[in-house]
Amino acid sequence: MHDGSGLIAVQNLTKHFGPVAAVQNLSFTVSPGSVTGFLGPNGAGKTTTLRMLLGLVRPTSGTATINGRPFHQLGRPGRVVGAVLEAQGFHPRRTARNHLRVYTAAIGVPDAQADQVLTLVGLGSAADRSVGGFSLGMKQRLAVATALLGDPQVLVLDEPANGLDPEGIAWLRNFLQSFARMGRTVLISSHLLAEVEQTVDQVVIVSRGQTVYYGPLEQLRQQQQRRVLVQPSDIGALAGALQAEGVTAIEQLPDGRLAVSGVDSKHVADCALRAGVSIYGIQEEQVDLEQLFFRLTSGQYAGHVPAPYQQGGWAR
């Protein structure tokens, strides 16, 4: 039986579909108590990886375990892991409640659980409607409800925001965070960092089937150096004054401004005042994670092979 740790471990996972290397030697772990984002552009291998983790796709090599066990050794998998996958379907002429009751039976949980999860995802009033008439967002909510039927310890979601309205996305975000706060495990994939940025604590970023970053999102943020863009009356004087204070990462921009890294705008302004330099404009450059994400993953179609990942750090 499984160890109940809530740990997801992916080790040297590789999958070839004929000539297509969908996933190459991927490794990462996901711990309980946090929401982990699984990020990468379309075709990076996210869906394939999650499906290997869930026993739906047979790996070419490597292992993927939940609670220390491959999916098929979990015993009653529906009570350990819930999944919302792309292209996971419904019978169009089955009602939402009947759909859920098929799987309460399969998982071996009371039927009352079906109505409970329907209410939880806000579909209580649509319980007796056929799923064929559901909007994309309603289907996605029903998929989440299905995943929650067995009260699982681990949740795996593949691009769950697709088709959800802003209200649904906000609901999902809150739900996943409180789910993780109960000490459970959440792994959520997306091709947009911005979409999950406010939800996730950890990130695994993949590109072309390989890991390019793996660690806390906060650490990723900090690695993006902040810059202060300043337009002084005397560039030379301000640069000199900053250098005298030990600030060396100074760069002159084509538009005539100075870009100062590693300090905040208050520091630059104080320094300018002491040096008697006027400031006509000052601005802190926002941390743009999306740009960073793009830079990390843009190798995908450029034809170069990224270096192997390092835990909690840059790939190069």
Partner: peptide
Amino acid sequence: TRTITTTFLT
């Protein structure tokens, strides 16, 4: 209908 995914997951 792709319900096979859920069938195998449960």
